[in-house]
Amino acid sequence: MTDIRTTIADTRFDVRVCGLLLDGERFVVSTEEDGTRTLPGGAVKIGETTEAAVIREFYEETNLQVQPRCLLAIIENHFELKQQRHQQIIFVYELTKSKEDQILQKEAVLAQWQPLTEIVHLKPTGLKQLLGSSETPLHIINKEGTIA
């Protein structure tokens, strides 16, 4: 299956998912090769539901088997990277573990448990709005960098 990803005019567009897996006062964070810290996730594939995508992507990055509990947020993420404009629609799910496993590094990302207070340091920066919000799903618009 092909990722939902295309270029329109001068903007790279894709549909993504990520998952928030909590364990007390900690959660799973992925650190990308370039040092970017975010929630584990990735691109949705053509014909795939966002729930199926978050299960697949979370497993690919962490080796943890999870199930979506609820949709926490939809993020409109606008940013510039390496002089390329990007626009993403990101579905953020709260997850529960469906099996007790250890995190294993399976891709080129480092997945690890972090204190919940570290959520403020994640990309996109709009993820910090998930803390303390009882309203779901949130609609977050995140604009970073030099987007006009």
Results as ranks from 00 to 15, higher is better:
Asp3Phe: 10
Asp3Gly: 06
Asp3Glu: 14
Ile4Met: 12
Ile4Ser: 04
Arg5Leu: 13
Thr6Gly: 09
Ala9Lys: 13
Asp10His: 12
Phe13Pro: 01
Phe13Met: 13
Asp14Val: 01
Asp14Glu: 15
Val15Phe: 04
Val17Thr: 14
Cys18Trp: 00
Cys18Gly: 03
Gly24Asn: 08
Glu25Ser: 13
Glu25Asp: 15
Phe27His: 07
Phe27Leu: 14
Phe27Thr: 07
Val28Ser: 10
Val28Asp: 11
Val28Ala: 11
Val28Gln: 08
Val29Trp: 00
Ser30Pro: 01
Thr31Pro: 06
Thr31His: 02
Glu33Phe: 07
Asp34Lys: 10
Asp34Gly: 08
Gly35Leu: 05
Thr38Gln: 12
Thr38Ile: 07
Thr38Tyr: 02
Leu39Ala: 08
Leu39Arg: 03
Pro40Phe: 01
Gly42Gln: 06
Ala43Gly: 14
Ala43Gln: 05
Val44Glu: 05
Lys45Thr: 10
Lys45Gly: 03
Ile46Arg: 11
Glu48Asp: 05
Thr49Cys: 06
Val54Pro: 08
Val54Gly: 06
Ile55Thr: 13
Arg56Ser: 11
Glu57Pro: 03
Phe58Gln: 07
Phe58Leu: 08
Tyr59Trp: 09
Tyr59Pro: 00
Thr62Pro: 10
Leu64Pro: 09
Leu64Arg: 03
Gln65Leu: 15
Gln65Thr: 15
Gln65His: 10
Arg69Asp: 15
Arg69Trp: 00
Cys70Asn: 10
Leu72Val: 07
Ala73Arg: 05
Ala73Asn: 04
Ala73Tyr: 03
Ile74Pro: 01
Ile75Ser: 09
Asn77Asp: 15
His78Gly: 07
Phe79Met: 01
Phe79Thr: 04
Glu80Ser: 13
Gln83Asn: 15
Gln83Trp: 05
Arg85Thr: 06
Arg85Val: 02
His86Ser: 10
His86Cys: 12
Gln87Asp: 07
Gln88Cys: 08
Ile89Phe: 01
Ile90Gln: 11
Ile90His: 04
Phe91Trp: 12
Tyr93Pro: 05
Tyr93Asn: 04
Glu94Pro: 02
Leu95Asp: 11
Ser98Gln: 13
Lys99Met: 14
Glu100Ser: 10
Glu100Lys: 12
Asp101Gly: 00
Asp101Leu: 12
Gln102Ile: 11
Ile103Lys: 05
Leu104Lys: 14
Leu110Trp: 00
Leu110Pro: 00
Ala111Lys: 05
Ala111Arg: 04
Ala111Gly: 13
Gln112His: 14
Trp113Ala: 11
Gln114Gly: 01
Gln114Ala: 15
Gln114Asn: 12
Pro115His: 02
Leu116Gly: 03
Glu118His: 09
Glu118Lys: 10
Glu118Gln: 13
Ile119Ser: 05
Leu122Val: 08
Pro124Met: 06
Thr125Ser: 12
Gly126Pro: 05
Gly126Tyr: 00
Leu127Arg: 07
Lys128Glu: 14
Lys128Ala: 13
Gln129Arg: 15
Leu130Glu: 05
Leu130Met: 08
Ser134Val: 11
Ser134Leu: 10
Pro137Arg: 09
Pro137Asn: 09
Leu138Glu: 04
Leu138His: 02
His139Gly: 00
Ile140Ala: 03
Asn142Asp: 15
Lys143Pro: 00
Lys143Cys: 07
Glu144Tyr: 01
Glu144Leu: 11
Thr146Trp: 01
Ile147Thr: 06
Ala148Cys: 08
